[in-house]
């Protein structure tokens, strides 16, 4: 219970810090949806370096979470690996069980994050008409995105050690935000560039850049492009399945080494 409580507090604090540091909380003349987009979903209106830097700054709580849970599976390969895995009759089943636990912790953290954003939004705007769909999409995007990268850190760390796992995974995330800068007056969001934009994990993470024909449309659709909000959900879901599947396969094939990668000089 203590662990869950700590996660909830951290999730809540993460959102409060992001709102406090990066949001103009005096802008209260907005409805729930408009304010919530800014308070929770990493919305940035352009691809200038300034806005992309703000996007990266807002992702810092996510990176901190990924660093902590990026060693959740890896830790079993550090010490006592021989005694742990000589007892594991089915490593793949074990791996899937650990993956489910990571999803659980990710969900708790970001549920707290989103609920805090909802509370702040209602408190600031006075508008209690919660746009449930918006909250749910934001929550699912955050959970699946962070699950994918936590798992990636774990898998890379098993082979290279935790510091390299972080460097490589953080590098991928930073690069995926960095490349969005080309859409700032250099390249148009049409044709093949748009397809590449849709494959970029960072662009899939930001709810407000998506399009929706339903009532969500008035809160998102920032760039008026064909970028269906449901397709990104499927994209993250498929990525999650792939990483879990690949991880389960790799875990079964690797030799359990005696060396502790954290102890390598």
């Amino acid at each position: 219970m203590g662990k869950y409580f700590f996660l909830i507090i951290c999730g809540s604090m993460s959102n409060i810090l992001n709102i406090f540091f990066y949001l103009d909380i005096t802008d209260i003349n907005s409805d729930f949806g408009t304010y919530f987009i800014m308070a929770a979903s990493l919305a940035q209106p352009t691809f200038t370096s300034g806005h992309l830097v703000l996007l990266m700054q807002s992702m810092i709580p996510m990176f901190a979470f990924q660093i902590v849970y990026g060693v959740y599976i890896y830790k079993h390969f550090c010490c006592a690996s021989v005694y742990y895995f000589s007892r594991q009759k089915n490593r793949t089943r074990w791996f899937i069980g650990e993956s489910v636990k990571i999803i659980k912790y990710t969900a708790i953290f970001f549920a707290s994050y989103i609920l805090t954003a909802i509370a702040v939004t209602i408190g600031v705007t006075g508008d209690s008409k919660v746009v449930g769909e918006l909250c749910i999409y934001t929550f699912l995007y955050f959970v699946l995105y962070n699950f994918v990268f936590c798992m990636l850190i774990n898998l890379v760390s098993i082979f290279t050690g935790s510091q390299n796992g972080i460097i490589i995974t953080y590098g991928i995330q930073m690069a995926s935000v960095f490349v969005l800068n080309v859409f700032n007056d250099k390249v148009q969001l049409t044709g093949i560039p748009l397809k590449l934009f849709k494959l970029n994990p960072a662009s899939n993470l930001v709810v407000s850049w998506h399009s929706s024909s339903g009532k969500l449309g008035k809160y998102i659709n920032m760039f008026n492009i064909d970028f269906d909000i449901n397709v990104s959900l499927i994209y993250f879901f498929v990525l999650s399945l792939i990483i879990t599947g690949v991880g389960g396969f790799i875990i079964n094939k690797i030799d359990v080494t005696l060396e502790n990668k954290e102890e390598k000089g």
């Binding site: 660093i67 050690g161 935790s162 510091q163 796992g165 954290e262």
Partner: peptide, 11 residues
């Protein structure tokens, strides 16, 4: 325990 955590403090 884990070197990965050492990226956090300065950050």
């Amino acid at each position: 325990k884990y070197k990965a955590f050492l990226f956090l403090p300065f950050y």
